[in-house]
């Protein structure tokens, strides 16, 4: 079965929330600040089994030393959060293929 972020966040405590109930732009800035490697994707691109919501270009960050990914996670009533969770190399490569290269 493929990975699903929504299920993971409900059933695991192995993740960290770096910002919650925030605006998208603030969360994008936090991802850029915290990650040591970034790719930029389009709204609606699928990462870890969910379509990522946001304003393009959407940063997805990696901490290769810790083996984690930073991504924005948006809910209608709770705004956007930055979630950091473990990720394997296969998923990292899938995300790299989505990179638009557009950083503006």
């Amino acid at each position: 079965m493929s990975f699903c972020l929504d299920t993971y966040l409900q059933q695991s405590d192995n993740y960290e929330i770096h910002a919650s109930k925030a605006g998208f732009k603030d969360c994008a800035m936090i991802i850029r600040f915290k990650a040591d490697d970034l790719v930029y994707i389009k709204p609606g691109d699928e990462v870890l089994g969910v379509r990522v919501i946001g304003i393009p270009p959407i940063p997805i960050g990696f901490d290769h030393e810790k083996g984690t990914v930073f991504l924005p996670y948006t809910k209608p009533c709770h705004g956007t959060s930055v979630v950091e969770l473990p990720i394997d190399e296969e998923e990292v490569e899938k995300i790299r293929k989505l990179d638009t290269g557009n950083k503006k």
């Binding site: 998208f24 609606g44 304003i55 948006t74 956007t80």
Partner: peptide, 15 residues
Amino acid sequence: HKDAAASFFVTFDQI
């Protein structure tokens, strides 16, 4: 009418 709603709208629009 919220930041999240703008994000949702843009995402649906883009898809």
